[in-house]
Design a protein around this nucleic acid. Sequence first.
DNA 1: CATTCTGGTGCGTGATACGCAACTGGATGC
DNA 2: GCATCCAGTTGCGTATCACGCACCAGAATG
Lengths: 264, 264
Amino acid sequence: MGNEGERDSAGVQSVDRALSVLKLLARHGELGVSEIAAELGVHRSTAFRLVATLENHDLVHQNDERGRYRLGIGVVRLAGATTARLDVVREGRPVGARLAAEVGETVNIAILDRDEALYLDQMAGTSALQAHNWTGRRIALHATSNGKVLLAYAPTGRFEEVTAGRLTRFTERTVTDAARLREELDAVLDRGYATAVDELEVGLTAVAAPVFGADGTVVASLSASGPTFRLTAERLSAVAAQVVAAAAEVSSRLGWYGRARFGQ
Amino acid sequence: MGNEGERDSAGVQSVDRALSVLKLLARHGELGVSEIAAELGVHRSTAFRLVATLENHDLVHQNDERGRYRLGIGVVRLAGATTARLDVVREGRPVGARLAAEVGETVNIAILDRDEALYLDQMAGTSALQAHNWTGRRIALHATSNGKVLLAYAPTGRFEEVTAGRLTRFTERTVTDAARLREELDAVLDRGYATAVDELEVGLTAVAAPVFGADGTVVASLSASGPTFRLTAERLSAVAAQVVAAAAEVSSRLGWYGRARFGQ
DNA sequence: CATTCTGGTGCGTGATACGCAACTGGATGC
DNA sequence: GCATCCAGTTGCGTATCACGCACCAGAATG
């Protein structure tokens, strides 16, 4: 069900299988040895040994003795080391935190990950009405402000890939028409920021702006998001300016000196 | 620095090596194939194939073509799936977010991970003066409020293990004496919460309370932290009560019905 | 209480992951 | 500007090692 065709993976067979186990657990949440074996198409004993090795490194964890397996905290440890080293997060965090305090809304940093937006870091605003923590989540590109920014500045061809399939409708206001989306993205390139009002969830509004790396390409997107009743149409443009400014500061910290250059 | 001797790891050799590569990268940040090979004690070609397989799954990433390797965003993806499934985080997040809004300080959820505290999730408060994001970080048990809670309620023997080595001094106020620490932990068990003032960083104060699982054991610790000038001595007890209440609510969501039972 | 799941474990064998050696291409030396 | 060195990368043959088999132990189902 719903698996992406990744038949290319070669490399070391057993390692490849072990990593597939991690992906399976990420997708299904909890699996038994037999289920894993079935999914991989190997013998149960093979699956067991793979899982046991993963468990030695705390990457998977067995609920109760002789129970099913799920991802372990070793994964969180690794991720902490990963994001700590990622330049975008390291430089973006203080700026994002300040922005969150200024506008009082939740700030997120997301990057382009294949055909989705991957949320790397989040700084909460002052509101009690707080959206969930999106860190580590992946969300479709056409329904969020971050996604629109990332897609607008993405390498040519990516847009066609994304719009090749059907665009999932999340709410009534989700943009599901490719032509309509293309127009929006052109507007994003023009203004330098993107918005999304009630497009992913009803009552959720967001503004996002691109973060440029030293080489001038867009490496991430910075957004502020909050409830629609607070991020009203008139306030949105003011917040957008702040988001753009914050994103520009992160960009300059990453060694970007130029001005936004379109169509490059 | 500070590596633990893990010679027990058996299982599937190549998988074991591949996972060791991930740990090495987490520790060193960036490594070349030859360095990895030297650390593992294998041939360069072997290390290369392991890394290549990891790269196929986005768990490592090569900077520029023919460059060094670092951890990849696949790790972040996995971690997102991991924490999303962890009961403590799932149940703790809404409660923690509300607490963060109420007290206006940063809220963290941490668990006991070997001999350190592992920070799983963070909900930022209203202040612009915001501590770093600690998610995924591991910190010594004796210098933070979360660590004290986790150590106080830890299985017997853990205290001796931790105090067997020397307790690292972070600031002037860090508790580095084992007897002094034992007293504090007893007080923690007595009051039901722990504090740490200027013990990890000067100017950083925190309060933490235990989260109980359905079986009555402590599964996590919930803390509120902020600048010492704002979390003054008189305010601290009030905040402590709120933290304790929040932690208790998370506990009940996890299926814990009893009252705190000491020395169980 | 038989049956049938489950996770877990020795063991022999053949697939496979390993080390070797050679290739490539950038950096350094002189 | 050529030689040298060291980096990451690749084909190949072989010995290792990871695999599947058979089997064990406990839980759940009937």
